[in-house]
Design a protein around this nucleic acid. Structure first.
Lengths: 232, 232
DNA sequence: CGTTATTTTGATATACTTCAATAGGGGTGG
DNA sequence: CCACCCCTATTGAAGTATATCAAAATAACG
């Protein structure tokens, strides 16, 4: 449920397994029917799920680990649209082609669904269609929030918002895993690695967070963090 | 279809009219059934359609004029998520409450649809549900593109992308209307009014665009504009 | 037409970037 | 098991794009 399985050795290799009836649906939802048409895929660190512009033949759901969505400019400037954590769906927004590349941040397993099957299912079982729409709407809502962040927040506010968002998504725990690098965070928040590092150091210095290690943060003063995040 | 009706006197006042069978559906689409349940609403310049946090009881479609979606931070910093032009839908992404405020940029008319009716229609007529999903997906795709812009593009590139985007949305005409103020553009692109003005002046100086007046641009060198926009 | 709001342009300030050097940390091979 | 090495993160110093402050020039409007 959390991204805590993120740090493992890099030994496994890609494999695909048909899953019959999947156990462990981590949320009680209407998507049980989906489990019957998904296959598990394992990804090594940095391995790509798909590339921007590829025909969108599959949807994915993260099971363990973390995936990042990337877009690049011609000269290499990179933006990470989102980090997908266990339970998150990837590619639901694709109309025909993927609009971003997707790469495993760490050792990751995902379930892969054929788009054709899901779409068929969706339009014969309205609940599923409804659920898909709901997920996409949530994504759009999150995107709007992030645009506000990218457009108008300071570096400190961006980092605070990011940490808070991660904490919320991973079950409101005090301890928050940061499976991604500082560069990844920077590319997600429109900052440089160095600015990310400085902002984290500042928060640590102010006693708002503690850094267990560079990939794990403890939120010491959630109120202060919320203030800095400028919850609008 | 274009935003060219944007400059009119500010004489009309809010009114709501039941429309029977609407003529002038500007695109041949499956949404004809919607026309039967919409009412026309007129808005004066700067008038609000709804506020962030309001319960989302209606969807809207712009008929003439332009609408902006706004989000504010506690200290007044503003972000404009999107400008909605004739044909664009507003509020489809709302789950229960609106996630942004919507205000008329200029004298504007919109069609208002009751969410309940549309949702009912959507789940009994799959084509409509499908179309809604498609519109929301497009919105998400546009949002991702804008995040890349906000995260990684320079001021010049942002302005170029913005102009190009407007040109494409309003029918690829050479002449592009800018119904919004420089401040609006700045709040949309994560810049200040002054930077927007300077970037436009620069493009003009370089012969890429001409400024007919402060609210109307002519694209003189589309290739150059596309280069500056860094079409990834 | 005078009056006010918007835009343009200029001068200075600053948050963040860039460049550079140091310090951890984790894995590998000796 | 330790030492070395590479990769990532941290910290520092200098540079730059954009913001801020300020004033002039247009355009909108009554």
């Amino acid at each position: 449920m959390s991204a805590s399985l993120a740090f493992q050795t890099e030994t496994s290799h890609r494999r695909t397994v048909q899953v019959g009836a999947t156990r462990k649906t981590d949320r009680p939802d209407e998507l049980a029917a989906l489990d019957r048409i998904g296959s598990v895929v394992s990804l090594r660190r940095e391995e790509s799920l798909f590339y921007e512009g590829d025909p969108a033949e599959y949807y994915f759901k993260v099971v363990t680990g973390a995936v990042r969505s990337c877009k690049l400019l011609a000269d290499g400037r990179r933006h990470i649209g989102d980090f997908f954590l266990p339970g998150d769906f990837i590619g639901l927004d694709a109309e025909t082609d993927y609009i971003f590349s997707a790469e495993a941040v760490t050792e990751t397993t995902v379930v892969r669904y054929s788009r054709r099957s899901v779409d068929a299912l969706a339009w014969q079982e309205p609940k599923i269609g409804r659920r898909l729409l709901s997920i996409v709407c949530h994504g759009l809502s999150a995107a709007q929030e992030r645009m506000l962040l990218l457009s108008r927040k300071t570096a400190d506010e961006r980092i605070a918002s990011f940490l808070l968002g991660l904490a919320i998504r991973t079950g409101h725990a005090e301890r928050v895993a940061l499976p991604m690098t500082r560069t990844d965070i920077g590319d997600h928040l429109g900052l440089t690695m160095e600015t990310v590092s400085r902002a984290l150091s500042q928060l640590k210095h102010d006693g708002v967070i503690a850094l267990v290690n560079s990939h794990e943060v403890v939120i010491r003063d959630r109120d202060a963090l919320e203030d800095k995040a400028e919850a609008a």
